[in-house]
Design a protein around this nucleic acid. Structure first.
Length: 276
DNA sequence: AATCGTTTCTCCATCTATCC
DNA sequence: GGATAGATGGAGAAACGATT
């Protein structure tokens, strides 16, 4: 039982207004809730918990009673974390001069990018970094088109293949396995996984689209995206991290100060449907 | 002065995203 | 599907102001 559940139980049983001290006293006496270290509960902790759950409790002066509605607590920390990070990181990125490494030049120079449709038979079976751009941003929906415009580039994703670029990009671009980029792209393009398709699966995040939709997404990728890659033997993690923090690719989430809320939301929508 | 209530910080278990 | 690193949110404690 959590502390707020224990407080609820006290109020339900007592059926009267109680102060934080009285609740603490009752809880300590009845031992409905015990702290990990075994010490007694202070009234200040009751007060904090009651304040954090305004939908469960009502304060009348120093007295507390049940609200009667069981809704989620309103917590200070849960306010749009991604948006906050983006705003903060953007100011840092524009204010600082970012180092241009050899890897950056070789990987990101736009003239070296080729259409995905031409890349399939050229990809090496060795580790490295890859970057994906969109040649025709006009084929994205308006909100994403605008977002790329704000970012001043056409970079969709920067990733790493620690074993094989050929295998990794097979997952990401041709859905041969669980590709993060493929899932994110399918989601923001508006595709949804079959309902309840993750029920009973061990990993409740690896949703997949129907074979028919996968085919449509692959076609879209081959018609709209371009790619460049570099084979590397070492330091790729550091380089990948630096590049993501410099360019804010639109579909990278982890390690990206410019992670896009719309991408996270679209992926969550897919998960909810697939989990049934 | 003692008690009560609020704010803010840190710790840590759980959840999520990603990679292979 | 499993492993793992990072993110998130719940919980407790400390500091401090307000009230009695």
């Amino acid at each position: 039982m959590t502390l707020h559940e224990a407080i609820q139980r006290v109020l339900e049983q007592e059926k009267r207004l109680l102060t934080a001290s009285e609740i603490a006293e009752i809880l300590n006496a009845r031992k409905w809730y015990s702290k990990k270290d075994g010490s007694i509960i202070k009234s200040s902790q009751i007060s904090v918990r009651v304040s954090n759950y305004p939908n469960l409790f009502i304060k009348s002066g120093s007295h507390i009673h049940l609200n009667g509605r069981e809704l989620k607590p309103i917590l200070k920390k849960s306010v749009a974390p991604v948006k906050q990070k983006v705003a903060k990181a953007k100011s840092i990125a524009t204010a600082s001069t970012l180092e241009v490494t050899e890897i950056d030049k070789k990987l990101m120079l736009e003239k070296w990018f080729i259409p995905v449709s031409q890349a399939s038979h050229q990809l090496p079976d060795s580790p490295g970094l890859y970057a994906i751009r969109i040649a025709k941003p006009g084929n994205l929906k308006a909100s994403l088109r605008k977002e790329l415009g704000n970012r001043g580039h056409n970079i969709m994703y920067i990733g790493i293949a620690s074993q094989s670029l050929k295998k990794r990009l097979g997952q990401e671009l041709w859905a041969k396995g669980h590709g993060t980029f493929f899932r994110s792209l399918g989601a923001v393009l508006g595709y949804l996984p079959p309902k309840s398709s993750l029920v009973g699966k061990g990993n409740q995040n690896n949703y997949k689209f129907s074979p028919k939709d996968e085919g449509k997404i692959i076609k879209w990728i081959e018609e709209n995206l371009t790619i460049n890659w570099l084979t590397l033997s070492d330091n790729w993690n550091i380089e990948e991290d630096k590049l993501i923090k410099k360019y804010f690719p639109m579909l990278n989430i982890q390690g990206n100060p410019g992670a896009l809320r719309e991408v996270v939301d679209a992926r969550n929508k897919c998960k909810v449907i697939a989990r049934g």
